[in-house]
Simulated scan of single mutants.
Amino acid sequence: MTLHFEHVTAPQRVLFGTGRAAEKVAAEVKRLGAQRVMVIAAPSESVVAREVTAGVAVAVHHDDVAQHVPVAHAERARRVAENHAVDLVISVGGGSTTGLAKAVALTTGLPIVAVPTTYAGSEATNMWGSTEAARKTTGVDDRVLPIAVVYDAALTVTLPVELTVASGLNALAHCVDSMWAPRADPIDRAHAGEGIRALAEGLRRILADPGDIVGREQALYGAYLSAVAFSSAGSGLHHKICHVLGGAYDLPHAHTHAAVLPHVLAFNAPAAPEAERRIAVAFGSSSAVDGLEDLRIILGAPRALRDHGFTDDVIPEAADLILASVPPSNPRAVTAADLRMLLHAALIGEVPSMG
């Protein structure tokens, strides 16, 4: 089969080094010539954020962070940036923190230096999202792509194992979706396959020893690859489902991805044999679905959406909301009935099987 595709590589500096975040952040601020820096970090990350930015002249620290980036929070952060004449935003934290920095950049054009402390991957994409009136809106805009990312595995060591697992499976979901998302190409699939391998190795090592820096580095490396693949390939069925569930029902982002992923994989895999084979090989398994399930069992991964506030009575509404955004390129046609069955399986934490 001949190859024919178009791939765009996003312009971004990636600085990777354990224990060197403060040094690299200061160097980036100097390189960019920034004089008035806004640091965004949730209250739980405030100590880490101040340590990471110790060598930077900070104009304002901002901690009004909430998951799914509510529009009101975004507007307040933009006003803070304007009132302090900010010329650079530094985000220190997980996906919600990076998302708020992106909301500022979307309307101001301010550059972002992202310092991730989870495996969310938002720092390596040009995608943004916000929530208003129980609906999540997403978009793509090059203004929100951080100009630089500083990866330091030491910053993830205090992330509890349970959150590490959920966040890592969120990154795995980026990889899986990138196998068949609307713009998926061979480069995306190569990144995604290596991302799955690195994440699976890293998460297993972290579970055995939460302080294992090599495991943390592998997980961060895999999360970066997952985000690069996802940014290029676009949002597939899995992410369309999770965006609706997060925005409409305020479900926790990473846990929702972890619970939904196996069911989307089981649904799509029979219609995408090449992608299924790549995923299986990355897991070191004869089956993509079995490989993911084996990893989830080892990790004690989040399994049932009902554990996070989702209820059976809203499934019909959720299925209708999701159906409107299903990518036409999904390997398998999707009906409302399919989505109701998938959501029920994720609700109760059913063991997935290809069908």
Results as ranks from 00 to 15, higher is better:
residue 217 E to C: 07
residue 257 H to F: 02
residue 85 A to T: 13
residue 339 L to I: 07
residue 61 H to A: 13
residue 46 S to C: 08
residue 200 A to L: 08
residue 352 P to C: 03
residue 22 A to R: 03
residue 153 A to L: 05
residue 158 T to P: 10
residue 204 R to H: 09
residue 181 A to D: 14
residue 305 L to A: 09
residue 343 L to E: 03
residue 88 L to I: 03
residue 161 V to M: 13
residue 288 A to L: 13
residue 173 A to P: 12
residue 12 Q to C: 09
residue 211 G to P: 01
residue 127 M to K: 08
residue 222 G to S: 10
residue 65 V to L: 05
residue 330 N to R: 08
residue 288 A to E: 12
residue 213 I to G: 02
residue 252 P to Q: 03
residue 97 T to K: 13
residue 7 H to V: 08
residue 278 R to V: 05
residue 193 G to V: 04
residue 330 N to H: 09
residue 139 G to L: 01
residue 51 E to T: 13
residue 77 A to H: 03
residue 139 G to R: 02
residue 193 G to L: 07
residue 348 I to S: 13
residue 226 S to E: 05
residue 24 K to H: 14
residue 318 A to R: 11
residue 24 K to C: 10
residue 333 A to N: 08
residue 238 H to K: 13
residue 290 D to I: 10
residue 51 E to L: 15
residue 171 A to Y: 01
residue 34 A to W: 03
residue 98 T to N: 15
residue 6 E to S: 14
residue 315 I to A: 14
residue 265 L to R: 00
residue 315 I to F: 10
residue 138 T to Q: 05
residue 244 V to M: 07
residue 12 Q to R: 11
residue 244 V to A: 11
residue 262 P to T: 13
residue 103 A to E: 14
residue 168 G to Y: 01
residue 177 D to Y: 02
residue 250 D to Y: 00
residue 249 Y to H: 06
residue 28 E to H: 01
residue 351 V to G: 03
residue 105 A to W: 05
residue 201 E to I: 10
residue 273 P to F: 03
residue 39 V to H: 13
residue 206 I to G: 00
residue 122 S to T: 14
residue 178 S to I: 00
residue 77 A to C: 01
residue 91 S to K: 08
residue 1 M to W: 06
residue 235 S to Y: 08
residue 331 P to C: 09
residue 153 A to D: 06
residue 267 F to E: 00
residue 242 C to E: 12
residue 187 I to P: 11
residue 315 I to P: 13
residue 201 E to C: 11
residue 78 R to C: 04
residue 10 A to T: 14
residue 266 A to W: 11
residue 302 P to V: 04
residue 95 G to Y: 02
residue 229 A to I: 08
residue 50 R to K: 15
residue 253 H to L: 10
residue 83 N to H: 01
residue 151 Y to A: 08
residue 181 A to H: 14
residue 112 I to T: 10
residue 307 D to Q: 02
residue 261 L to Y: 07
residue 230 F to W: 00
residue 76 R to H: 14
residue 291 G to F: 00
residue 178 S to G: 06
residue 10 A to M: 15
residue 68 H to F: 05
residue 144 V to F: 04
residue 81 A to I: 10
residue 94 G to Q: 11
residue 117 T to M: 00
residue 243 H to C: 07
residue 62 H to G: 09
residue 274 E to Q: 01
residue 7 H to W: 07
residue 139 G to D: 02
residue 306 R to C: 09
residue 157 V to F: 06
